[in-house]
Amino acid sequence: MSDTSTPAAAVNVRRYRLVRNVVAVWLTVMIVAAFLRDIPRLNILEHTARNLYFHVPMWFTMMTAVFVSAYHSFQFLRTGNPLRDIRALQAARVGFAFGLMGLITGIVWARFTWYAGAGIWWNFDPRQTMAAVQLLIYGAYFVLRTAVDEPRRRGRIAAVYNLFAAATVPFLLYIVPRQMHSLHPGAEGNPAFSETDLAPAMRPIFYAAVIGFIGLFWVLYTQRVRLAVLKKRLQGDPEF
C-alpha cells in the first residue's frame, strides 16, 4: 500500500510525464476529428451537435473526479495519511472546474437550440438545475475546509462531508432529472449509450473525447498534488 511510502514520492513523475504527453497528443487529434468528421445534419442542432464531443465529457470527467476524490476521502478516514486529504481536495477542485465548464457550455448550447427565438439563457430545466445544485454541494465542501484550522480535524470532517457529497451525485445527475420533464436528451433513458441519441458516426470521437478529458483531469490533478506537497514541505510540515 502506498500509504507507507514517504509523501515526497507522492507522485511518480515519470508516469506523470508519459500520461501528460499522451493526453496532449490524444486530445489534439480528437479536436481535429471533432471538427472535421462528418456528422448527421439535423434541424435546430445543425453543427452544434459537435458540442457533444466537448460538453458531455465535461460531466463524465466531473463524475470521475468526484469519485476519485471520495475514494481518497475514504482512505483518509481509514489510514489518516495527510496525503490522502490533499488528493481528495485537489481531485474535487479540478472536478469542480470541469463541472463548471460543463454547466456553462450547457447554458450556451441551450441558448441557441432549446431557447433559440425565446432569448432566454436559463429556464430551470431540471437537468441544469440539478447540475447547479451539485456544484453548490461541492462549493460547500471547499467552504467547510476553510472553517476548521486543525489539519487532522479538518481532514476528517471534510472527508465525511465529501462521502455524503459523492453519494448525492448519482441522484442529482442521473436519477432526478429523468423523473422530471426535461428538454435535455436522455430524459427517457440512457443518452450516452442508447441507440437513438448518439449517431454511430459520432461514437468513436465521443468515447475518445471522454477518455481524453478524463486523462486531462488526471494530469491537472496530479500537477496540483505535486504543488500541494511542495507547499507542505516548504511550510515545514513534519509529515511531509
Binding site: V13, R20, V219, L227
Partner: peptide
C-alpha cells in the same frame, strides 16, 4: 501546462 511542469520540476529539486 508543460512550462508549469518544468517550473515544478525545478522547484522540487530546489526544495
Amino acid at each position: 501546462l508543460f512550462r508549469t511542469d518544468r517550473k515544478i520540476d525545478a522547484l522540487e529539486r530546489t526544495v
